[in-house]
């Protein structure tokens, strides 16, 4: 793993600092009163943001009777797991989990690859009319999804992919790569020219330069995209709800929302379903948090 994060788009704006004595920060580790106030404020904000998650956590382990007598804010009187077990068995959770994982994972990888190819032509190749090409791709993001539903339903039905998870994979690969193309084209557009010139001088072809030079250097951005795509696809629900009618092909959010109308769902089982709905993305996020983190620490240590 390379720990130095290569700058992607650094404009050469450092001439001004060249002849200054480099100031070493001896004052860095002494937080002032204002710094502490800022820290407290950001922590208070974070608690407010996390509050609904804490509520889910507390109430998933309560019995319905406990909930009815003490309300949503108290801690559970005793550990009650039936809510979670109920939901787990009712929806066959492992199956839903696997559906969500492979669909989101496949979309994330496909969409990053497509984004890289598109952005290479647009941002580095600077093909004619590149703004318009970006706009064409962005259409996938611009269109309200409801507008795509009817036509896509008919088209996938005609080719026999309706009620097949691959239909969802294809649709979201396009939708996510629209964003990726836009972001990467902008990032590649400011790619350091010297690096590209050096690669060309060494006789590298475009294809080699893309995979051996540009992709490795852009890896922090690509990982962020991969994480976003995975989570965004995971959370989607209108299109999966429409295209995956079979119980066995449903994703986690679809399974949860389908159960909502169910009269048999008591409030703590609902909470448990919410908990099981968040945990997988939370785990995924925590695993890849490092990728997002590397940037901050690199900046702070330098």
């Amino acid at each position: 793993m390379t720990t130095s994060t290569p700058a992607l788009t650094v404009p050469a704006a450092t001439e001004g600092t060249a002849n200054r004595p480099a100031p070493r920060q001896n004052k860095r580790n002494k937080p002032t009163g204002v710094d502490i106030l800022v820290l407290v404020l950001t922590i208070v904000g974070a608690i407010a943001i996390a509050f609904p998650f804490l509520l889910i956590l507390i109430n998933s382990f309560k019995s319905p009777a406990d909930y009815n007598s003490t309300g949503p804010l108290s801690f559970p009187g005793s550990l009650y797991l039936d809510g979670i077990v109920n939901f787990w068995e009712r929806v066959n959770f492992p199956e839903k989990l696997w559906n969500s994982i492979w669909i989101s994972g496949t979309v994330a990888v496909f969409a990053v690859v497509i984004s890289v190819l598109n952005a290479f032509a647009i941002g580095i190749g600077r093909i004619r009319g590149n703004t318009w090409v970006v706009l064409a791709f962005l259409l996938a993001n611009l269109l309200p999804q409801e507008a795509l539903l009817y036509p896509l339903y008919n088209m996938f039905k005609a080719v026999g992919l309706y009620n097949n998870p691959w239909s969802v994979v294809i649709i979201f690969t396009v939708i996510q790569s629209a964003f990726g193309t836009y972001l990467l084209a902008s990032v590649f557009g400011t790619f350091p020219k010297e690096v590209l010139e050096a690669a060309a001088l060494d006789g590298a072809s475009r294809w080699t330069t893309l995979w051996r030079v540009i992709v490795p250097i852009s890896r922090p951005t690509l990982s962020v995209l991969l994480i976003f795509f995975f989570i965004w696809t995971w959370n989607e629900f209108l299109i999966p709800l429409t295209f995956l009618v079979d119980n066995s092909t449903q994703t986690v959010p679809v399974a949860i929302s389908v159960l909502q109308g169910d009269r048999l769902m008591d409030v703590t089982t609902t909470s448990a379903s919410a908990l099981l709905g968040v945990i997988p993305t939370l785990i995924f996020f925590l695993i890849f948090q490092r990728t997002l983190t590397r940037g901050i620490t690199a900046g702070a240590v330098k």
């Binding site: 959370n235 929302s257 379903s273 709905g277 993305t281 995924f284 996020f285």
Partner: peptide
Amino acid sequence: ILPVAVAGI
């Protein structure tokens, strides 16, 4: 990272 279906609940 909260699925919108879950956020709704």
